[in-house]
Each structure stands twice: as C-alpha cells, then as structure tokens.
Simulated assay, not measured.
Amino acid sequence: MSERLRNKTALVTGSTSNIGQAIAEAFAAEGAHVIISGRNRERGAQVVEGIRASGGRADFLAADLDGSAENSQDLADRAREALGGRIDILVNNAGIYPAPATTATDEKTFDEVYGVNVKAPFFLTAAVAPTMTESGGGVIINLGSWIARLGVPLGALYSSTKGAMETLTRAWAAEFGPMGVRVNAVSPGVVLPPAPEGGEPHPGEIMMKGTPAGAVGTPDAIAYAVVWLASDEAAFVHGTVVDVDGGRTGVAVIAA
C-alpha cells in the first residue's frame, strides 16, 4: 500500500474481529501504529500477531466499553500511553446487535445496547478529542449502519443507536472541527465474510438482490473507506456519513 497513515497512531474499538479487525489491519498496512481493543484477549493477540507478521505495528488492550465514562476514559489513557503520548485517529467501531422485537425488549437489554453503542463512544470521544486538539489535530470516524435510514423488522433498538451515532457525527464535526479534529462516519451495508463455496445463501445475500452491487460487501470494503477518511486525502471532509452499502439505501431496489 501507499503508507497514507505513516507515523500516525490509531485506536480502533471492537477490532478483534470482522469490520474492526479489517480496519485495524488496513491502518497498519498504511503505516499506522494501531491499538487493537476488545474483550477477547485471545482474538486480540491473534490480530496483533497477524499485523506484526506482515511488518506492521500493533498492540492489544483489553477493554469492556459498557458505556461507563470511567471505562472509556481508562481505555483512552492506556491507549495514549501505549502509542507514545498521542492518539491521531479514533475509530468508534465497537457495537452489539441484539434484535428482539420492540415489545420483547426489556429495559436491561435497552440500556446495554445504548451503553455499548452510544454511551461508550460518546465518552471515549470526550476523552480523546481534547488531547487531539492539544497535539495539533486528529480524526474521529464513527460506524453507522444502513438500517439507520431504511427500516427493517426487528431493527428498532439497534438502528436507533446507529442513528444516534450519525447525528453525533455531525454535531461533533461542528464542535471539534474548528479545533482541528475532523469527524466523519461510514455507514456499512450488508457485510459478511467471504462465504464458502456451495453453502446455503445467507439472509443478507437475499437483501442485496436487485441492488447496484447485487451482492453483500466484505469487511475490507468498509476498511478501505475508513482509511480514506483517516488520511489527508479527506482533509476537506467534515460531518459526512459515507454510505458503503452497495447502493442499498440510495438506489431503488429492483425486485428479481
């Protein structure tokens, strides 16, 4: 790759698997020193090992981002120390997706999902953004979701959290942009790891029929967009949500 993030430091939450892992690996391939964070130490160690084996720089920090301000501040402090005193890029990727019906959602589940998906990135951003401004600037990238704008059955709780993150993206761009911190978001569509040959079609594949892409995306597709937003190539991009969804939300779906 072109080392667009050479000498940059990055914290990617929820990066022990799937989209977060792909983002961390792409950042490292572009020259950044990346903090992998998540709850699973074994998976985190594997991601770090893979990045280092490819010549990249990465470290793992265990973190339970449950929504408490204390846990978010603790991760920010430990990441900053591990990265030599500064965090140039923050990716708020960690999230959970229970999908009960609205009438079947209890208060504990509601609070847990909002804690992980909204409160944790809110307080992590609050902990990281001021030190970014002190260091001369930085980049914050949030992960939204296509179902924040296109309703699906059983998606009320999760999609509302992603709608909140997209709104926070614009608000934070207004709040922190004048201080040198760019804030944007990526809204993934139906994203799945590559499927084995001959397997049964995943429900997500059916949802993408009739779209311009005609197929699901992979975690790498999201990672490429995040790398661009983190790089100087996107220096004039503020408060934007980039749809990486195969055209699912922006184009009429043609029934097969």
Results as ranks from 00 to 15, higher is better:
residue 1 M to T: 11
residue 2 S to A: 11
residue 6 R to F: 13
residue 18 N to T: 04
residue 18 N to A: 08
residue 22 A to G: 13
residue 28 A to F: 08
residue 31 G to R: 01
residue 36 I to M: 00
residue 36 I to Q: 00
residue 40 N to F: 04
residue 42 E to L: 12
residue 47 V to K: 00
residue 50 G to C: 06
residue 67 G to Q: 00
residue 68 S to M: 00
residue 73 Q to G: 05
residue 84 G to D: 08
residue 86 R to L: 09
residue 86 R to I: 09
residue 86 R to P: 11
residue 86 R to M: 08
residue 89 I to H: 02
residue 90 L to D: 07
residue 94 A to R: 01
residue 103 T to I: 06
residue 103 T to S: 11
residue 105 T to M: 06
residue 109 T to M: 08
residue 115 G to V: 08
residue 118 V to M: 02
residue 126 A to W: 09
residue 143 L to H: 02
residue 145 S to M: 12
residue 151 G to T: 11
residue 156 A to G: 13
residue 157 L to C: 03
residue 158 Y to M: 04
residue 159 S to W: 10
residue 160 S to F: 05
residue 164 A to Y: 06
residue 166 E to C: 08
residue 172 W to Y: 15
residue 172 W to H: 13
residue 178 P to V: 13
residue 178 P to S: 10
residue 179 M to L: 15
residue 183 V to H: 08
residue 186 V to D: 07
residue 190 V to S: 11
residue 190 V to A: 10
residue 192 L to Q: 04
residue 197 E to Q: 12
residue 197 E to G: 14
residue 199 G to N: 11
residue 200 E to K: 13
residue 202 H to R: 03
residue 209 K to P: 03
residue 226 V to Y: 05
residue 232 D to P: 08
residue 233 E to P: 12
residue 238 H to A: 03
residue 245 D to G: 01
residue 254 I to M: 07
